[in-house]
Write a protein that binds this DNA or RNA. Structure first.
Lengths: 177, 177
DNA sequence: TGGTAATGGCTAACGATGTTCGCTAAAGTA
DNA sequence: TACTTTAGCGAACATCGTTAGCCATTACCA
């Protein structure tokens, strides 16, 4: 850190305000889902008027992209903390998603804005999975997709109410073992 | 069909109007995606004003549910027409989805309104898949989810641009073979 | 230290959205 | 023919994301 690069106090405050807004956005989404996230509601939560948000953010999409990044980050940590076998990873994936259903939706339901995302975050999050299938990227994508599909369908209530989802997950893990 | 059950001409016209509206809705979604489907736009397409739509439909959600049903129907037909092996079914699934991306989104992205749906449609559509995995319902759900996950991630641009998705599909099919 | 520029709030407002209301003319029915 | 139902209409409302314009405070610099 050279002197020239030291961030000015004003920049620090600016960044802190932005973080505060994004944290509030995440809280709203966690509490009330994506459809609960409104610019006015968000502004309210941080104690300002909606138009003032635009002094800190370009538009609502920027909020969603930030949430997407946050989701990827948190999910990646959950996967990294799991035992390095397919069953444990699958379980970690599923429980993270069920614990953060709305954030999961934001994280995976929006088209990925690659250039807006921290470079490498994506592959970093997927890394434990790639490792566990022996480095075969195609297989890794198939497993990832299977897990995502199971979660997505479960979250959207697409399985019959009496479906044994534990068994479905087991079947998936078994297939890729 | 007894005499008493024969639908009156007025009921027939009513139903036809409704069908016309839903067909227009499907066309709009196919052309411009779900976000292009607006009540005013829809009304315009069938030559009326937006409020008049509510003489035929309860609300916009009813339109979406109808589209969901239509998607399930069309997709089920595509699957039923495929060769009864996993590779062919997977290919049929994928190409239907890629041919109808927006309809696919409506069909699978919304929470399923089971009670609003034609009973049995769901399991009918899934039938070819269940058959090909030998009747094991858990395995069938895992395969279904894997296919859905692959399509969903592809449609949302979640795979790296240079990813070989044919290979990913092959890996999935191979795993469940 | 005083003057100037940038920052970060505000209110008002716009256009688009889904939807409700009340009216009316036509169609169907007795 | 008289009544009721139907299916359209325009006006309007609340909510949404967002823009414009204004203003006080803050930061910076001669």
């Amino acid at each position: 850190m050279s002197l020239a690069e030291r961030p000015s106090p004003v920049a620090v405050r600016r960044a802190a305000r932005r973080e505060q807004i994004l944290a509030a956005a995440e809280a709203i989404v966690a509490a009330d889902g994506v459809e609960g996230l409104t610019m006015r509601r968000l502004a309210d939560e941080v104690g300002m008027q909606a138009p003032s948000l635009y002094k800190h953010l370009r538009d609502k999409e920027e909020v969603l992209v930030a949430l997407q990044e946050s989701a990827l980050q948190s999910m990646g940590e959950a996967l990294a903390g799991a035992e390095p076998d397919l069953g444990s990873l699958a379980a970690a994936y599923r429980s993270w998603a069920l614990d953060h259903p709305a954030l999961y939706e934001v994280g995976t339901g929006l088209a990925l804005r690659r250039n807006a995302l921290t470079p490498g975050l994506e592959s970093w999050a997927a890394e434990p999975l790639v490792a566990v299938v022996g480095g075969d990227e195609h297989r890794a994508r198939a497993v990832w997709a299977a897990a995502h599909g199971l979660v997505d369908l479960e979250l959207h209530d697409r399985f019959p109410p009496d479906a044994d989802l534990d068994a479905a997950w087991a079947a998936m893990v078994d297939a890729f073992k």
